[in-house]
């Protein structure tokens, strides 16, 4: 196959080709990293901490974060790998954190659920459902007090929409017109509970109405839609127009925690999983890019190879790194 000629790269999309290709690579990094981790999780002693995989939901983190600057803040959850990588966190430090090593992004103190990279606008992820939603509001408050045009993003699941603090956060953010974007990753389940068993009204985006805030529901598996919708909200927030709630419909391929698909637990059907797998955010975007003439087979293969190398290096780095020294157990409770 011939190298794609430059002029072909205009496409029909209004989004710049390098942004589109950047999002493609970013999604592939999340997918390939987690697929490698899922493989490693099958050897029980290698990675011990609980790991919640994001496989299938990549378009949400990537589409949102492609609009963000380094100074913007992203607050994350127990299912945090995607947010961390999409915001610019280092893959080696992520792998090392999962392995509980000193070189990990939380120095082996946090594990998979507690990732931070403050230098990239990742102040930390919390495993308490809805725990970081008010923190994002607070970061937005700081930006607004200091008259900076940064934004804070709170990622959270449909389950988090059951916690009272979610509603309190919407209210405070709207009341003070804070530059915070609430991104609800509605993957239809909160552990074993389908969303309809938890919420009297499952239209999470409509909760925004009661707080006089824009709320939308979009296809969270379409990275371009996520990019555009988040882009609009973020631009408005930077201009001081206040917060927004974006509900992204998506699906986690694997079980709530760990590498398995959990189809044997009677919680969801194989048909449901299959139908979502055909809506794979990466495969569909790849087809879109090819149809637009934005990526050739050779280029696809090159990206794939590069990401494979990056993932392999990250895991090798994690494995070779030392464990924390147990003599340091009490260090770091206070600064």
């Amino acid at each position: 196959m011939k190298q794609a000629a430059k002029p072909r790269r205009t496409g029909r999309s209004d989004v710049a080709p390098d942004v589109l290709l950047g999002m493609y690579r970013s999604m592939l990094r999340l997918r390939k990293f987690e697929e490698a981790i899922a493989e490693r999780l099958k050897t029980p002693s290698e990675i011990v901490c609980p790991v919640h995989l994001y496989t299938g939901e990549e378009a949400v983190a990537v589409g949102v974060c492609a609009n963000l600057r380094k100074e913007d803040f992203v607050f994350s959850t127990h299912r945090s790998h995607g947010h961390y990588l999409a915001k610019g966190g280092d893959m080696k430090s992520l792998a090392a954190e999962l392995y509980g090593k000193t070189t990990g992004c939380s120095h082996g103190r946090g594990g998979s659920m507690h990732l931070a990279a403050p230098e990239y606008g990742l102040p930390g992820s919390s495993a308490i459902v809805a725990g970081t939603i008010p923190l994002a509001v607070g970061a937005a408050l700081a930006f607004s007090v200091r008259k900076e045009d940064n934004v804070a993003v709170a990622f959270f699941g449909d389950g988090a929409a059951n916690e009272g603090v979610f509603y309190e956060s919407l209210n405070l953010a709207a009341l003070r017109k804070l530059p915070v974007i609430f991104i609800c990753e509605n993957n239809l389940y909160s552990t074993h509970m389908p969303v309809a068993s938890c919420l009297a009204s499952t239209e999470i985006y409509r909760k925004a109405e009661s707080f006089c805030m824009p709320g939308v529901r979009i296809d969270g598996n379409n990275v371009l839609k996520v990019f555009r919708e988040a882009g609009r909200a973020i631009a408005a927030a930077r201009l001081g127009e206040g917060p927004a709630l974006i509900e992204c419909l998506t699906y986690r391929w694997r079980g709530h925690v760990g590498p398995n698909y959990d189809l044997d637990k009677g919680l969801r059907s194989k048909e449901e999983l299959d139908s979502w797998m055909t809506r794979c955010p990466i495969k569909n975007f790849e087809e879109f890019l090819a149809a637009q003439g934005l990526i050739s087979t050779a280029e696809k293969e090159a990206v794939s190879r590069e990401v494979d190398v990056e993932v392999a290096e990250a895991i090798a780095f994690a494995r070779a790194s030392p464990y924390p020294d147990s003599a340091e157990i009490t260090r770091g409770v206070f600064r």
Partner: peptide, 13 residues
């Protein structure tokens, strides 16, 4: 110890 629970196995031990 008056420390939050750490993740890594060496610290847990």
């Amino acid at each position: 110890p008056d420390t939050p629970a750490p993740a890594s196995r060496t610290l847990e031990k």
